[in-house]
């Protein structure tokens, strides 16, 4: 079977395939991505809802980009690290916030809100199995609204999904 489909025709805008270097994949991988094009489009829509929502609630676009960049670095995903660093650069974040894009960097201790957010992001990225009810309580005690806790959890969960799909596609797209 010859592959006639070029994934680039239909997915020029998809962050994930671009970052994984497979947006123009041909052959069996290009065919597989074409077969799952609807899912890749919904993944892109989920990216927009998680990183660039129309109603960001109490979690700004700049904060979302910072946290995503931090998660991409923790997961060592080069393509998405580059993407999120570029997205962050567009957002004009204050230096103190932008610094949190580096794993290990901590917010000023007096900033209870960001401290609680960063602790949640790190735990649920690195070791979700260790999450406990206290981790949600800590966010609530820092004054974060329930709707924003759900937004934060959705962001962390989505980015971890995206990072892993990108990790696999990047390897599958390597010339053999």
């Amino acid at each position: 079977m010859t592959s006639s489909f070029n994934a680039a025709d239909s997915t020029p805008q998809h962050v994930l395939e671009q970052a994984a270097g497979v947006a123009t994949a041909q052959g069996p991988l290009g065919d597989a991505l074409a077969r799952r094009q609807a899912l890749m489009s919904r993944t892109q829509a989920s990216y927009e809802a998680a990183l660039l929502p129309e109603d960001p609630g109490g979690l700004s676009h700049a904060e979302r980009a910072v946290l995503a960049c931090r998660m991409a670095r923790v997961c060592q995903q080069a393509g998405l690290t580059e993407h999120y660093a570029a997205l962050l650069a567009e957002k004009d974040a204050a230096d103190e916030l932008a610094a949190l894009a580096t794993p290990g960097a901590q917010p000023p201790a007096e900033d209870a809100r960001l401290t609680a957010i960063v602790a949640y992001v790190d735990l649920v990225t690195e070791s979700p199995r260790d999450a406990s009810p206290e981790d949600i309580q800590r966010l609530q005690q820092a004054g974060i609204a329930e709707s924003d806790i759900v937004r934060l959890a959705g962001l962390v969960a989505f980015v971890n999904y995206q990072l892993r799909v990108a990790a696999v596609l990047a390897v599958m797209g390597e010339p053999t």
Binding site: V124, R129, A131, I136, A153, V156, A157, N160, Y161
Partner: peptide
Amino acid sequence: GWANRLMHTL
């Protein structure tokens, strides 16, 4: 991995 991070934390 996505669903677990919601179900197991929320």
